[in-house]
């Protein structure tokens, strides 16, 4: 069998928006920009909003970062033919749920946010359940290879405690770098009002986020 080497990665650079979010770069070109809706209005489940920043080793927010989001729906099903089939029959996501999106930081503040639905637990390797999580891929100027991490939800104590990926993190204190923090009160839960979570990503330093070689 022919064996090739993977094309080496290079930084996305400061003008990544031109290609992946041209509206943000300042011009209209495509009929539809991809990655705008992770979970459209018809998608089922608890609406959530994630807010955060990506911070460099000096604590300064990156103002030119782009994140891609990949997640399962509220039932733990990915919009992909290889999603686990726990009941042994093909499972598909509902209309309006894509599970993928693109998020860019504000050019002045570095703040970013996205709205979606909270994912359900996903079947992992060897029949173990993975706690609800959102997969993130981070590219920017100065990042030579896109960084992979996961966002988990702080209130999922039991599921997080049994999560096979979180359990791989030897320094247990570092597991908390992957927990999104709930903002506001629990009694505001309604389908229309999204729950708000805070998730800051530290590229370097004492609070360095756990990044994966996936």
């Amino acid at each position: 069998m022919t064996s090739l080497k993977e094309t080496p990665s290079q930084t996305a650079g400061p003008y990544v928006h031109i290609g992946l979010a041209p509206g943000a770069a300042g011009f209209d070109i495509y009929e539809t920009e991809l990655g705008q809706d992770i979970a459209g209005p018809e998608a089922k489940g608890q609406r959530i909003r994630i807010e955060g920043q990506v911070l460099d080793g000096t604590g300064a927010p990156l103002k030119d970062v782009l994140l891609e989001v990949w997640q399962a729906n509220a039932k733990g099903i990915y919009a992909h033919r290889e999603t686990p089939q726990p009941e042994g029959k093909p499972q598909q996501v509902e209309a309006g749920f894509r599970g993928w999106g693109r998020v860019i930081s504000d050019f002045d503040t570095g703040d970013w946010q996205f709205e979606t639905v909270k994912p359900g637990p996903v079947h992992g390797r060897g029949g173990q359940m993975m706690a609800p999580h959102i997969n993130l891929w981070i590219v920017a100027r100065g990042i030579n290879v896109g960084l992979n991490t996961r966002l988990y939800f702080e209130e999922e104590h039991e599921a997080n405690g049994n999560d096979p990926v979180l359990k791989l993190i030897e320094q247990t204190a570092r597991r908390s770098t992957l927990l999104a923090r709930r903002q506001g009160q629990a009694d505001t839960d309604t389908a229309e009002t999204p729950l708000v979570y805070r998730f800051d990503i530290h590229l370097q330093g004492p609070d360095e986020t756990v990044f994966f070689d996936i």
Binding site: G57, P84, R125, A140, V165, L203, Q204, G205, F212, I214
Partner: peptide, 16 residues
């Protein structure tokens, strides 16, 4: 300033 200093954690492929 934009490079992690700690090693990446190797993760066997899952559905994610």
């Amino acid at each position: 300033s934009r490079s992690p200093r700690l090693p990446l954690l190797s993760l066997e492929n899952t559905a994610s």
